[in-house]
Design a protein around this nucleic acid. Sequence first.
RNA 1: CGGGGCGUGGCUCAGCCCGGUUAGAGCGCACGGUUCGGGUCCGUGAGGUCGGCGGUUCAAAUCCGCCCGCCCCGACCA
Length: 477
Amino acid sequence: MTENKLPSRSENFSEWYNQLVLKAELADYAPVRGCMVVRPYGWALWENIQAGLDRRFKETGHQNAAFPLFIPMSFLEKEREHVEGFSPELAVVTIGGGEKLEEPLIVRPTSETIIGYMYSKWIKSYRDLPVLINQWGNVVRWELRTKLFLRTLEFYWQEGHTAHATEQEAEEETLRMLDVYADFAIRDAAVPVVKGVKSEREKFAGAVRSYTIEAMMGDTRALQAGTSHFLGQNFAKAFDIQFLDWNNELQYVWTTSWGLSTRFIGAIIMTHGDDQGLILPPVVAPIQLVIVPIFKSDSEQGKVMEAVEKVKQALGHLRTHVDDRTEHTPGYKFNDWEMRGVPLRLEIGPKDAQSNSVTAARRDLPGSQGKSSLPMDSLGTSIPALLDEIQNNLYRRALDFRQANTHKPTHYEELKQVVKNGWADAWWCGAAECEAKVKEDTTATTRCIPLEQPGGQGKCVVCDRPATQRVIFARAY
RNA sequence: CGGGGCGUGGCUCAGCCCGGUUAGAGCGCACGGUUCGGGUCCGUGAGGUCGGCGGUUCAAAUCCGCCCGCCCCGACCA
């Protein structure tokens, strides 16, 4: 009767997540520890994420390009913080074509260095600036503990790398791309995010300042869903990226980098999913609409399939799938597509065909609550409207959840308590010791200093000294 | 690397403590029929060097040793 049941989301979130990823056929474990195979359904979701981002990148004037997978080891060593940050997690190639290499190559963990090297060759004048390039690709980081999509040895992402003539322009670019990520997360993925600045401790190795969008997952843990870094002149100096300015003076460029990875798929799963399985936001769902035909006799089949054809034509612009498998009963298919997160299901049976209507079932509302009968003639407008409503409902629900689980502790004992099961939004003096103490005592870290601040000042939740900024403490993935 | 748990058909596990016929179940898979508006039901069948190596024993999935792998919790991280 109940086969292939998922573990309960509320009882064992982690197990629920792992099994859901496998059963929904988003990904599978690869033979190498920590590596992941992205299966067609998962990749289709990634392609929709890519499309949403890529459109925004183009709108903001960026171009795509591709840089090498292999980077000379010496490149990494040119920027001190960068090499310190990434050394422990490098994959290194020492043999090529059977010969020991003179200089080891690293498999890129990120491409600031090799792109910096190329930029130094390309940029000579202020007329060459800005350079606005994005790369879609894969990178390798030898992580100790991995989790499907969230942290794998190899992952797919995009990394944007830009160079500018002035500090202000680079800062603007950094924030512009942070906004692009936030807009994508909110509007395409229905994932509410907080934009903010990372603390010194949490920032990218080599950055002057790292910005982040942080999202709350269904177990209240935080996930860094995308980052944008202001790199100052760190990489420009390490790679000699210099240009002659308007006054014929030699200047270092100002650079930025920003990235969003397949980790975001994990964010979508953990934000929207429920005990039944995935719930995918319509904008990014590989299948927006599944049609389940229902019939017994041959004559019923004829009428039903005729209706199915009509519906397909009316909804030609949507990503639609007709589940015409004969080996499964309708009930089985309902559960199957719910598990896979398809946002809307249309059931078309003899009764519907008879009454010239279809039965629609929303994935975001459970059981009969989400069911309604829609007249066949107006599906061209009613279905897109319904998908919109689902998209909006998913966002609002996730936002409500985050707000309900974000606390504002005013003293340390309270902080320690709330951070066990939620976010803490609190005054912080900015001292690294306070940050470290919280981590020590609770495992929670500072996620970001939100860009939106209430103003005024208070007392640091850890040490009671005066504080002018609020920060979010949370346990994170 | 530290702490905990676990390795038995594709999956989830029982059997192990107390060694002894051809190693089991449910799900999945294949075939036939039945059913089809919320995971139909019945039948038949395929599929396992019990993680690996070694030891004890007349006899090892079961006892002992070593190794390997996986999962969870930490340190590292998008």
